[in-house]
Design a protein around this nucleic acid. Structure first.
Length: 296
DNA sequence: GCATAAGGCTGGTTTTCGAA
DNA sequence: TTCGAAAACCAGCCTTATGC
């Protein structure tokens, strides 16, 4: 097979002249002197063995062969440009870093398996997790410290996009020895008269919960409030009362002495999902992991 | 492995030439 | 006369070959 030996610069020069029908304008456009540009075209023509331009001292016009060549070169240059842009993204997939802001309860339920699958295929990717409250997740997404967030929104926030992945219901958390533990479901009214342990007022979870606590007149039954939802099982385990927590926040493996009982009439839930900044573009790594999370 | 020389390539300036 | 392409010449850089 015959090998044609020309370079990228010659093609750029050819397109510049063809698009302007002028060596002078083309030379200015690609920051070259007119003679240098002329020589470049001449060499390309010599390499191809065809005349690409019919030129006089007054006029430069593409030959039919030149016109055909231009069409193909423009397509090729477009593809090359696209390849050059994509190659950065591909490299990023192999050595990139991803930062996820999340509420702790999503780590076990949403993150571990997708991260495991991601690292299996791309072992050099570094994963950074910023776990914290709902507000810290939103703040980390908003200021760009995190590629995306996992959590819930107690109310819509301008500039923040929320895409729900699953529902997380609120449950009662009791000791196995508690009389209420014989139930498979509990109505909110059955919590009247119990000593309740819940999340503090500053938590987004509490804002969701407050609708029922106020409606069922349960606020006065609260004896302990904790800032962290992860503290509630320990308090219940210590015998201080009945906990009310989102189901995903509870890890049964760490508390075999406790039981979760779904609360009904009504079933109260929060939507757990992906939090992104409006107008933000995800990195290839973040996009890949997000796809695995949504499909898990 | 390093230094040096030769050759090739690229791009710049200046000049020439031809057409309008 | 003006404008623009082409030719001539020069300088700088890079690659390759050679000798130590």
């Amino acid at each position: 097979m015959k090998r044609i030996n020309f370079d990228f610069q010659q093609l750029i020069a050819f397109v510049a002249v063809a698009e302007r029908n002028s060596f002078k304008l083309a030379a200015e456009a690609i920051d070259l002197s007119t003679p240098a540009l002329s020589r470049r075209i001449e060499k390309l023509e010599s390499t191809l063995g065809v005349r690409l331009f019919n030129r006089t001292t007054r006029e430069v016009k593409l030959t039919p062969v030149g016109r055909s060549f231009l069409e193909r070169v423009q397509v090729t240059l477009g593809q090359l440009e696209e390849t050059a842009l994509n190659i950065g993204d591909i490299a990023d997939l192999y050595i990139g870093q991803i930062t996820i802001a999340c509420i702790p309860s999503t780590i076990d339920s949403l993150l571990t398996k997708p991260i495991e699958r991601l690292l299996k295929n791309y072992p050099k990717i570094k994963v950074k997790i910023l776990d914290g409250s709902e507000s810290s997740v939103i703040e980390n997404v908003r200021n760009g410290k995190a590629d995306f967030g996992l959590g819930f929104l107690s109310s819509p926030i301008p500039g923040i996009i929320f895409e729900k992945i699953q529902n997380d219901i609120f449950v009662a958390l009791t000791k196995l020895t508690d009389p209420l533990a014989i139930h498979d479901k509990l109505e909110w009214d059955q919590l009247n008269g119990q000593r309740l342990i819940t999340i503090g007022q500053e938590s987004g979870n509490r804002q969701v919960l407050n609708t029922q606590l106020l409606d069922k007149d349960l606020s006065s039954s609260i004896c302990i409030e904790a800032n962290r939802v992860s503290s509630l099982p320990n308090l219940v385990s210590a015998g201080f009362g009945i906990g009310i927590i989102p189901l995903l926040s509870f890890n049964q493996k760490n508390h075999s002495d406790l039981k979760t009982i779904p609360l009904i009439n009504p079933v109260l839930s929060r939507g757990i999902g992906v939090i992104t900044a409006h107008g933000g573009k995800l990195s290839p790594v973040a996009d890949l992991l997000l796809g695995k999370i949504k499909n898990s």
